[in-house]
Design a binder for these strands. Sequence first.
RNA 1: UGGGGUGUGGCCAAGCUGGUAAGGCAGCGGAUUUUGGUUCCGCCAUUCGAGGGUUCAAAUCCUUCCACCCCAG
Length: 351
Amino acid sequence: MTNAIAVAVSGGQDSLLALSLMQEQGYDVHALHAFFLPPSERLRRTAAKLEDSCRALSVPLHVTDLSEEFERLVVAPFVDDYAKGGTPNPCALCNRQMKFGLLLDAARRHGAERIATGHYARISEHPEFGKTLLCGEDRSKDQSYFLALVPRNALAHAVFPLARWCKKDVMAELAARRLPPPLPSESQEVCFIPDDDYKTFLVRRNVRLGGPGPVILPDGTPLGNHQGLWRYTLGQRRGLGIAWKYPLYVIRKDLKNNTLIVGTDQEMRRSTCRVEELNILVPPAHWPKKVHVKTRYRQHPSPATVELRGTAPTQDMKIRFEHPEFPPTPGQVAALYTEDGMVLAGGRIEE
RNA sequence: UGGGGUGUGGCCAAGCUGGUAAGGCAGCGGAUUUUGGUUCCGCCAUUCGAGGGUUCAAAUCCUUCCACCCCAG
């Protein structure tokens, strides 16, 4: 058994500290950096800086171009989902397909059985069923939600050096270690959408997106027009452009009639949802009766009960929340937790 | 052209015993943030349909006109 480990480095602070921490712990460290977008001048510059950082640490850096795969496995499904009226979660997909898929494969090619990343989440060894995924120590920064679609056999090879770190301590620690991150503070560059403008991005992709249509209240009262259902997501408030007595939220997208149904905060809330493409991380036999579910990032897990239906490939589950929730949105991830933050399963919200 | 009502920012709407324009919605900006969304904070009428008058002072009182709405034999 070797103690070789690959560390996925993006150029940001978190992964750089992860790299340094792993090395400090005596691992035989390899740094992996991948281009998820076609290598531009800017990306090459980041890679060059990373090279400097790695040289300073005497760690070998392997750079690969995974832009074609990223396009196929993350971007294309993202665009496709929007075109179909869904609200995709590309980060969750990226973790499953890229970081704990292709990058893990790359790690193995370099002789490492494990891969470390800068995620704020924990992996622990459970006496009965092995490796489990836990939320990060710093719950406000916890990223386990985005990892809920990563298969168990991949997570078994994951290491999260920042598990017990707080975001605010990372920068100070890097400074103390004299490790300037190639990409300074926030790194919007990780995202494949320029300027956070996904609408323009989608329009430029030249896919077939729906056009304008009516906006109505649940009772059918017409209020105005929308600019294409793909531009809205369940629970959305801003951007409707309709002045009403009370704030209006998107409560339903009627794709068949190209109609947007809006209503009050109360009318918007749901207490059930159906989840497919399950990624079971803990055997259901060990699940508590009451679980806690996140259907969006930055949401406190909500108490709920779960009903598993069907078997393996086509298995799905029905979730019933104790209290009405902001509407679970098709395309987003539902992550099931125990009360103390162990991830039981993840899946794709269908309705 | 008989009677009644209304006219305040993009929308809705307080204010109308005169004292120098609430609030909500929408919008814009920012904060938060590995997705979308949510939430939070900030900014948004020198002006109250128009003109004239009374007054130290009017969206608020008087008057004329204009617009729209309702009832009407």
